[in-house]
């Protein structure tokens, strides 16, 4: 197991997977506050010359809170795509290239192979999320005001990381079923957005991993508070707000529900992946 973890870690470094994910997240972390502070007002004032700064400030949430909410929204929308396509080959490519054949015959266990991928890339994503959220926190604080507690940023980052770990488990499962990297990435994205769509449509997000995304975007405030404020920072938060209104106050129990459901799904997907790898034929053409 130690050797497998070492191998996955080397892979993440040598093939720039760590770099791609960390850099992309970091980019989002810096871009969102900048958009809000500089670019959006510029766009507004050039489009509507009569508009003064106060009116613009009423339309968009020019605050650290709004900025960070926007960041987590972007992290969901763009971050998921980046993760899906940079990690879609974790298992699929190995099956496609038959790189597992010699290790398998040499006694490497499927559970070690899958679990070490889960461990290493969970860490990669968690570290990237926390780091980029922290950077976004600092930068937005400097541009606006420090009004959000860092502890809630940490909590949101962890929730979001758990969501990304769910995406990882998905990538591994679909990869072991299809052995096709690109198809795996696309399928996982469809699953991710599909879950969110259905969850919002039927207002059952708290039962789903997508609940984590919504929770992460509340930045610890609770959805009803946001609804009362009437703040709309980004499109995806919009969904969150609407759901917040329709389902009333979201409590800690629904957070626990989302976390538990996601954890169960992660464990199930991982177990299914191992089972699939054990029963399938290897070294196929």
């Amino acid at each position: 197991m130690k050797k497998d973890i070492r191998k996955e870690f080397l892979f993440s470094i040598r093939n720039s997977r760590f770099l791609i994910i960390a850099a992309a997240f970091m980019f989002l972390g810096l871009l969102t506050p900048l958009m809000l502070k500089v670019i959006l007002p510029m766009v507004f004032s050039s489009q509507f010359p009569g508009m003064d700064e106060e009116m613009i400030a009423q339309m968009i949430d020019m605050s650290q809170f709004g900025s960070l909410q926007g960041f987590f929204g972007d992290l969901y929308e763009m971050g998921t795509v980046i993760v899906a396509f940079s990690l879609c080959g974790l298992v699929a490519q190995e099956l496609k290239d038959n790189t597992l054949v010699i290790p398998l015959c040499s006694g490497k266990r499927f559970s070690d192979i899958v679990l070490s991928k889960m461990i290493v890339f969970s860490l990669v994503m968690t570290i990237s999320t926390i780091a980029s959220a922290s950077v976004s926190y600092l930068y937005s604080g400097l541009l606006f005001d420090f009004e959000v507690k860092y502890a809630s940023i940490l909590q949101s980052s962890l929730l979001h990381s758990l969501y990304l770990i769910f995406i990882l488990a998905c990538l591994i499962l679909v990869g072991s079923l299809t052995s096709k990297p690109i198809a795996t990435g696309l399928t996982t994205l469809i699953i991710s957005y599909g879950i969110h769509g259905i969850g919002s449509l039927l207002a059952i997000n708290k039962w789903l991993p997508s609940g984590l995304i919504i929770q992460a975007q509340t930045l610890g405030k609770g959805l009803s508070d946001i609804a009362n404020q009437g703040v709309v920072a980004s499109e995806s938060t919009g969904t969150a707000v609407i759901e917040g209104i329709s389902s009333g106050k979201i409590s800690n129990s629904s957070l626990a529900l989302s976390v538990t459901m996601t954890a169960v799904l992660i464990i199930t997907f991982t177990a299914l992946s191992i089972l699939r790898l054990r029963t399938m034929e290897h070294n196929r053409r």
Binding site: D97, N98, T99, V101, I102, L104, C105, S106, G107, K108, R109, F110, R278, H282, N283
Partner: peptide, 15 residues
């Protein structure tokens, strides 16, 4: 698991 067999397998096109 193939590991039980105590074999070394060098496939036709080793990857």
């Amino acid at each position: 698991h193939p590991g039980q067999l105590s074999i070394g397998y060098l496939p036709e096109a080793p990857a």
